[in-house]
Design a protein around this nucleic acid. Structure first.
Length: 463
RNA sequence: GGUGGGUUGGCCGAGAGGCGAGGCAACGGACUGCAAAUCCGUCUACACGGGUUCAAAUCCCGUACCCACCUCCA
């Protein structure tokens, strides 16, 4: 069976056929580093991380490029408000993003280019577009350069919209545009309002890149004129991805073969960016659940399904994940199977059907628990398969990526030593059938937040 | 106005013509000194109104409501 992906450009789920067999080039639009990352932001990263891991697991060599927009209107506006350098704000937010992604085990991209480091490539691409008659310098002397939407007949093809039907940007300043729908490739420097550091030299005078052009330039540089998969959030389909494709194709580059878009996470029906309090920011969410549990929550929903975020649902997901973890604990440290079960592979091949894939994990967990309770030796093999599946989803609790998060090893040793003494007393009481005393000890430990379970192998404690 | 998506059991969340995804919660049973964990079982749902079909949550027509995008957005 081969991987099938839902291509939002054609609205079809079709076989993934890489341009070069055994290789996959993926470009994902990352974040504009202008504020702290929230749950919605990391969903996109997790979704495409799962795609990457599955392609890798099925024998592809993956080139995974995720950009970071480190200069734009918002960064400039926010930094001005806060009285800091724009690059200081961008760098600080980039560190927050890195920390958030690391906390949920999102693999670092093969390379993570930023717009500010690719001005020459951007300028070169704009020059190509001007030379081909698809872009023009603004006639108002602003130093802006615009893409000429009317010069590119297939503009709108990605989102199946006709230029005439598009709502003209009423609020936008038409400046030197030939058509209100033309968009900026290059933004001339505004020396009276913008810092001098936010400008780079260009044939059209000092300025900075427009938002869309950076992705075309960087995808082209690292993945070539044609590459396999372009990803991002649904909101980026238009205008961002439409414009990226128009720019790239107008410059003679075939661009992406498949377009993948992840759906939103909302709160109370609203976009997170609108309703956002601090509680949806990653550090606060991680005060409620562990990173691996947050990741499970994201992975358990299909990437194209809208998710209504709630802490109740998140905590429920955490419980479901602990069931998987508990099984692995009970089964003991195991190997990782080299192959994933066929039902799991089939689910993943079907447009990354992680919900069905997670259901397969749970089926195996139940079988494994059953084997453990009857002393069946199959349990170890099942645990190895479970670990293999979790690995693909980035959810293997034994992955060193999770180490050091959630529990401190030295502290665990200290607690273990203290609790063990009490448990020995309790065991003695139980052997003497002194249930009152045994339960009193268990209650005392519980009052400190430690649960005790009696297992055939003796008492076990957990926080 | 244009474009795309949605409405599934107490809850979360899959599925896309027949064969009950999975989890959480609840209830019953097994196990246990009692628990916990685990296992077995129970709870038979698809917004509404028509239609097609031997068979519809799934296809078609209509209606209602919700969400996203239309140049800041993951």
């Amino acid at each position: 069976m081969t991987l099938r992906l839902h291509d939002t450009a054609t609205r079809e789920t079709r076989d993934f056929v890489p341009l070069t067999p055994g290789r996959a080039g993926i470009y994902v639009c990352g974040l504009t580093v202008q504020s702290e990352p929230h749950v919605g932001h990391v969903r996109s990263a997790v979704n495409f991380d799962v795609l990457r891991r599955w392609l890798t697991a099925t024998g592809h060599e993956v080139d995974f490029i995720r950009n970071v927009t480190d200069i734009d209107d918002k960064i400039l506006a926010k930094s001005a408000e806060q009285g800091v350098h724009w690059y200081a704000l961008a760098a600080a937010m980039k560190r927050e993003l890195d920390a958030a992604l690391a906390s949920i085990n999102v693999l670092p991209p093969t390379y993570e280019p930023g717009a500010t480091g690719h001005v020459p490539e951007i300028v070169e691409l704009i020059e190509q577009l001007v030379a081909r008659g698809h872009a023009y310098a603004a006639e108002d002397g602003s130093g802006d350069v615009y893409f000429d939407v009317r010069s590119w007949p297939s503009y709108g093809e990605l989102t199946r919209q006709r230029v005439e039907d598009m709502e003209p940007a009423g609020d936008a300043d038409p400046r030197g545009k030939r058509d209100p729908r033309d968009f900026a490739l290059w933004k001339g420097h505004k020396s009276e309002t913008e810092p001098a550091t936010a400008a780079w030299p260009s044939p059209w005078g000092p300025g900075r890149p427009g938002w869309h052009i950076e992705c075309s330039a960087m995808a082209g540089k690292y993945l070539g004129p044609a590459f396999d998969i372009h990803g991002g959030g649904v909101d980026l389909r238009f205008p961002h991805h439409e414009n990226e494709q128009a720019q790239s194709r107008a410059a003679g580059r075939p661009f992406a073969s498949y377009w993948l878009h992840n759906a939103w996470i909302t709160t109370a029906g609203e976009k997170m960016s609108k309703s956002l309090g601090n509680s949806m920011l990653i550090p606060s969410v991680l005060e409620r659940v562990r990173g691996i549990e947050l990741r499970y929550y994201i992975v358990a929903a299909h990437y194209r399904s809208h998710v209504e975020f709630s802490f109740e649902a998140l905590e429920e997901a955490a419980k479901a994940f602990r069931r998987i973890e508990d099984f692995l604990d009970r089964a003991g440290v195991s190997a990782v199977a080299s192959e994933v079960p066929a039902a799991f592979a089939a689910a993943m091949d079907d447009d990354l059907g992680t919900p069905a894939a997670v259901a397969v994990v749970h089926d195996l967990v139940r079988q494994g628990n059953s084997a453990l309770s009857t002393g069946d030796s199959a349990a170890a093999g099942i645990a190895a398969q479970v670990r293999a599946m979790l690995g693909v989803l980035g959810l293997d609790p034994a992955d060193p990526a999770w180490a050091g998060r959630g529990s401190d090893d030295r502290l665990t040793e200290v607690v273990d030593a203290l609790v063990r003494g009490l448990l020995e007393e309790r065991t003695a009481a139980r052997e003497a059938k002194d249930w009152v005393r045994a339960d009193a000890i268990r209650d005392r430990i519980k009052a400190a937040g430690v649960e005790v379970e009696d297992t055939p192998a003796g008492p076990k404690w957990s926080v």
